[in-house]
Nucleic acid binder design. Structure first.
Length: 475
DNA sequence: CTCACTGTTGTAATC
DNA sequence: AGATTACAACAGTGA
């Protein structure tokens, strides 16, 4: 049977380790590789300027790789539920393929599109390749609940064995008999958008240090994997969040958009580790990929994962609500993040705030002390806040404490050239610790507040992990 | 049930 | 300089 296939790129912006794309090529006569500019996902508030540039880079690279296979990318503007019926009819699609995505919006969107496909007699095939494992399988193995400790996730991962091996990208041979129709006005109708078309002011753009795209991702992966000593001794807590050159791989944005397959990354690391002494999870690079898996699993297994309210795993803290402070804090992150990932962002904020997973709420970071540990002289601050460049190291983390004469000598008066702190950390952190203490007291006295008692459905049969644990006990 | 132990990155003071 | 300790004291796990 000869198919007319539409492969829907969303995340997974790559050709390597793309089983859904390979499924599209099977018995395929005509192939339409499509990316949809979904106003729900792709608007100014969700995606900042830097991420837009990255995404456009990734799409451009994808189009370039597809052209080498005598195909090309169609960027379609519109809402998926409105776009698909039109495309199904216009192109006489018989098969739709895509990579499975676990985000709540994606799940509801895909359910809707699958229903539309059925109405149009279109076969739907999806494959799991964004994560190392089938996230739902991990939850199943944990008796229907997301693991709340890394150890537990590790035990499940160990019981499932290493992730699947990545599959190679399609070759010209795979493309034999597959045609992508050449349409007139392709550029105008289905071309890759520019930042200007998307309504962005590009004058604010700085040098592009991390261009998007699969080729760039694989090149960077190759480069890092050559540093075998560094890879084998990598320990995340030893990296520096404020060094001027990155002390990590910076592959996360590539993994987020799927320019790089997590499984490809995993197996390349396995190759480097082979026969050598190396670091281990949770701190190793393998460990970092398992953290991603951990938070993805939590995001699927825990309802309302990106919120406190209605999130049964999250400690319900009576936080202060000060719109002005929140806006000041939020401004730092929202727009500039390159590797923003829904599950990882929500999970890490819960961890860091001692709301979920991590519970030692009295261990509070100091915005003054934390930076000093890895950057005593404040070189990072001086680069990104040149206004403070002339402050001596003694005051660089607390310029408001510098005597007037030093502020004058530095050419920067706090309160005039540079804002005063919005809060007194010593005061506010103590206040918040008390809030946390109260919330935890409520949590432990109320049995319905305990996440372990709320989550999951007990299975009748013991899971593989339970059996492995039993075996271990005997030994 | 209790108890000891562990948990990828706390801070500040002290020796 | 690098280790140790007080601070105030959490949840989850497993014996």
């Amino acid at each position: 049977m000869a198919h007319t296939c539409l492969h829907w790129f969303r995340k997974g912006l790559r050709l390597h380790d793309n089983p859904a794309l390979m499924a599209a090529l099977r018995d395929c006569e005509e192939l339409y590789p499509v990316f949809i500019l979904d106003p729900h996902l792709h608007n100014k508030t969700c995606v900042g300027l830097n991420r837009w540039r990255f995404l456009i880079g990734a799409l451009t690279d994808l189009d370039c790789s597809l052209r080498k296979l005598n195909s090309r990318l169609f960027v379609v503007r519109g809402k998926p539920d409105e776009v698909f019926p039109k495309l199904f009819n216009k192109w006489k699609i018989t098969k739709l393929t895509y990579e499975y995505d676990t985000e709540p919006y994606s799940l509801s969107r895909d359910t809707e599109v699958t229903a539309l496909a059925k109405e149009h007699g279109v076969e739907v095939i999806y494959k799991i390749s964004h994560t190392l494992y089938d996230i739902n399988r991990i939850i199943e193995e944990n008796n229907g609940a997301a693991p709340l400790t890394y150890k537990r996730l590790q035990a499940i991962a160990n019981s499932l064995g290493p992730p699947k091996r990545p599959i190679p990208p399609p070759t010209l041979e795979d493309m034999e008999g597959v045609k992508t129709p050449r349409l007139e006005k392709h550029e105008k109708k289905y071309g890759i958008p520019s930042l200007e078309e998307l309504g962005h002011d590009t004058t604010a753009l700085t040098e592009e240090l991390f261009p998007g795209g699969e080729q760039e991702a694989l090149r960077r992966l190759d480069e890092h994997m050559k540093r075998t000593g560094w890879v084998c001794s990598f320990e995340k807590p030893q990296t520096s969040p404020n060094s001027l050159s990155p002390s990590t791989t910076v592959l996360s944005p590539y993994v987020t958009f799927g320019c790089l397959s997590a499984r490809t990354f995993w197996w390349r690391l396995t190759d480097v580790y082979q026969g050598k002494k190396h670091s281990h999870p949770p701190v190793s690079l393998h460990g970092q990929l398992l953290w991603r898996e951990f938070f993805y699993t939590a995001s699927v297994g825990i309802p309302n994962f990106n919120k406190m309210e209605g999130n049964p795993a999250c400690t319900q803290v009576d936080w202060d609500t000060n719109a002005e402070y929140l806006a000041a804090w939020r401004e730092v992150f929202e727009d500039l993040l390159l590797d923003g990932d829904w599950a990882l962002n929500a999970g890490n904020w819960q961890w860091l705030s001692a709301s979920t997973f991590f519970h030692q709420f009295f261990r509070v970071y100091s915005p003054v002390a934390f930076g000093k540990k890895t950057d005593k002289n404040g070189a990072y601050i001086k680069k990104y806040l040149p206004l403070l460049k002339k402050f001596p190291a003694e005051y660089i983390y607390e310029p408001w404490k510098a005597p007037r004469s030093i502020q004058q000598a530095a050419g920067c008066i706090v309160g005039k050239d540079y804002p005063h702190p919005i809060v007194q950390h010593e005061v506010v952190s103590k206040k918040n610790i008390q809030r946390m203490k109260l919330a935890y007291a409520r949590r432990s006295s109320d049995p319905t507040e305990s996440p372990s008692k709320k989550q999951g459905v007990k299975r009748k049969a013991p899971s593989v992990v339970d059996m492995l644990m039993k075996k271990k006990r005997k030994i």
